[in-house]
């Protein structure tokens, strides 16, 4: 399946992009992260959360959306 991956803040700086499409054949968020860590080794030691369907989800979650979003620590206000 083709997933749209979005990056925000510091993470967009590390990947040098805000969004990309990845053809992904496995099932879980953590498996997707393994792919991203190979592509962007500097992501690995960063503090971030993952959102699917606009909700934060644990890395053990099965992917069921088309958009996966990597979010650094929130710093609003």
């Amino acid at each position: 399946m083709i997933l749209s991956i979005k990056y925000f803040g510091l993470l967009a700086e590390i990947t040098n992009k805000e969004e990309e499409l990845i053809d992904f054949s496995r099932s879980y968020i953590w498996e997707l992260l393994e792919v991203l860590y190979i592509k962007y080794p500097n992501l690995k030691n960063k503090d971030f959360q993952v959102a699917q369907n606009q909700e934060l989800v644990p890395f053990e979650t099965e992917i069921n959306g088309k958009e996966i979003v990597l979010l650094p620590p929130f710093s609003g206000g």
Binding site: G9, F74, S75, G76
Partner: peptide, 27 residues
């Protein structure tokens, strides 16, 4: 409300210094 906003809303602050270097804000 203010505490909920700080904790739950995905907003990101890029702190820009006088010399145009930056760092990412941490709450």
């Amino acid at each position: 409300i203010v505490e909920e906003i700080k904790a739950k809303v995905p907003v990101f602050g890029k702190e820009i210094f006088e010399d145009n270097s930056h760092q990412w804000k941490v709450n």
